[in-house]
Design a protein around this nucleic acid. Structure first.
Length: 426
RNA sequence: GGAGAGGUGGCCGAGUGGUUUAAGGCGCACGCCUGGAAAGUGUGUAUACGUUGACCCGUAUCGAGGGUUCGAAUCCCUCCCUCUCCGCCA
């Protein structure tokens, strides 16, 4: 949610900035609601104040044994006036709230202007793409040939967009997770955190997935809990409704969780393989920071995610998402895209965003400014460090050999129980 | 799943319909006192919104949301959470 003050103090400037982001803000509806809200709020507060005063007078009169009947008659009208005013006010406030809750974040000045993915800006490229003197296979064929990856059985157990993995491939998948966690806790200063995988709707509202993206989530029938689409939700919501001390910032957390996405509306996309699944593992980095430092933190966090790819020696590039491609809650996002040989292109493997105060305001996550009156919203950031399933795909494809075996990257050696290459099980 | 007890400020804790404008204590901050400190003593010490140049002031918030009432921390209803016992269970 944006700061309501922005709309009150600089309505047209704010609307202009939203337009850059391809969002059309309904000025007339907003202005009408805001005008009515102000009047109703002042009036109902005055009425309530009046009622409080006379209720007190009634109490005192009664204590003295005076006749309170005439006073009560006077109160009658006051009460019903107040009730109807407050009802009106509540409705208007709800409408305003809904209007503002649907407005996306403003893009940072450094974000490239554009409408679609093709206008994203390449920031840097790392690593040399592997050269193969044979026809490359994709991870589906590779996994199949190894006898360690099985989509058909997953479809039998559940449905499309799930996978079953066996043996050394399942081990490689787990090794990736542990490697990432150890790197971020050991070298990048994150605290490892374990969180619930089912969350209430308030948490999803806080990080911005609700109300707009309800159709992307899995939800439990009886409780109305949501399976997390990313660890961002539970981890960022750790500070929901909290006031943290300035000295406790930055808070840096890393969590490994499964993620669940309905992938509604992407029926034709990436139907083959592990790129787009309903369930996947992710190691997520979250930072809660002082507003003055959030852009340094974004660079730092992005570098932390990049470090994973560098240690695994996987070629990638970093792109800055353009205004039209930016996520709802984000002010600036770097996508990390890893090289996928079978597709002969880079594919997203991490998304690192600064949400500034957007999520914090929705969550009421604040911090005390020493020497200053009142509390300010914190800034929140997160990034995948990395999406484990897609990292597995990248490792399989980039480390494949002519005979279909897969060399295990050096960095994973400590986690692979001496397995140096994946070979078909006999 | 069954039975019971609870939820009040940063913390403890009083408060069963009206001088409660939430007592009192602890903690914290700033004074006074002191050579310095402790003790003592005084003042202050939540959040959000509205109003204001600023102070003031107004409104709301006693787990959440409804209701009864002229008036609700207090009475009623629904829900959430915590604790104890029983059952089930990895």
């Amino acid at each position: 949610m944006l700061d309501p003050q922005l709309f009150r103090k600089d309505l047209h400037g704010t609307v202009e900035r939203l337009r850059k982001r391809r969002f059309d803000f309904d000025i007339d509806q907003y202005a009408d609601l805001e005008r009515v809200r102000k009047v109703l709020q002042v009036e109902s507060q005055a009425l309530r104040s009046e009622r409080n005063t006379s209720s007190k007078a009634i109490g005192q009169a009664k204590a003295k044994g005076e006749d309170i009947a005439p006073l009560l008659r006077e109160q009658d009208k006051l009460g019903s006036d107040l009730k109807s005013k407050e009802l009106e006010l509540n409705q208007v406030q709800e409408q305003l709230q809904n209007l503002l809750a649907g407005v996306p974040n403003l893009a940072h000045d450094s974000v490239p202007i554009g409408d679609e993915e093709s206008e994203n800006q390449e920031v840097r490229v790392w690593g040399d793409k592997p050269k193969f003197d044979f026809v490359v296979k994709d991870h589906v064929d590779l996994g199949n040939k190894l006898g360690m990856m099985d989509f058909d059985t997953a479809a039998k157990i559940t449905g499309a967009r799930f996978v079953v993995m066996h043996s050394h491939l399942a081990c490689l998948h787990r090794a990736l997770t542990q490697f990432m966690l150890d790197l971020h806790t050991g070298e990048h200063g994150y605290e490892e955190t374990y969180v619930p995988y089912l969350v209430n709707p308030e948490s999803l509202f806080g990080t911005g997935q609700l109300p707009k993206f309800a159709q992307d989530q899995f939800v439990t029938k009886d409780e109305g809990w949501y399976l997390i689409p990313t660890a961002e939700v539970p981890v960022t919501n750790l500070v929901r409704n909290e006031i943290v001390e300035a000295q406790d910032l930055p808070i840096k957390r890393v969590a490994h969780t499964p993620c669940f996405r309905r992938e509604a509306g992407s029926y034709g996309k990436d139907t083959r393989g592990m790129i787009r699944q309903h369930q996947f593992e992710k190691v997520e980095l979250v930072q809660i920071v002082h507003p003055e430092h959030s852009y340094e933190a974004l660079e730092e966090l992005t570098a932390h995610a990049e470090a994973v790819l560098q240690r695994l020696r996987l070629p990638y590039r970093v792109v800055s998402l353009c205004t039209g491609d930016l996520g709802f809650a984000s002010a600036k996002t770097y996508d990390l895209e890893v090289w996928i040989p079978s597709q002969n292109r880079y594919r997203e493997i991490s998304s690192c965003s600064n949400f500034e105060a957007f999520q914090a305001r929705r969550m009421q996550a604040r911090f005390k400014q020493p020497g200053r009156q009142g509390n300010e919203p914190v800034h929140t950031l997160n990034g995948s460090g990395l999406a484990v399933g897609r990292t597995l795909v990248a490792v399989m494809e980039n480390y494949q050999q002519h005979d279909g075996t897969i060399v295990v990257p050096q960095a994973l050696a400590p986690y692979m129980r001496g397995i140096s290459a994946l070979q078909p099980i006999r």
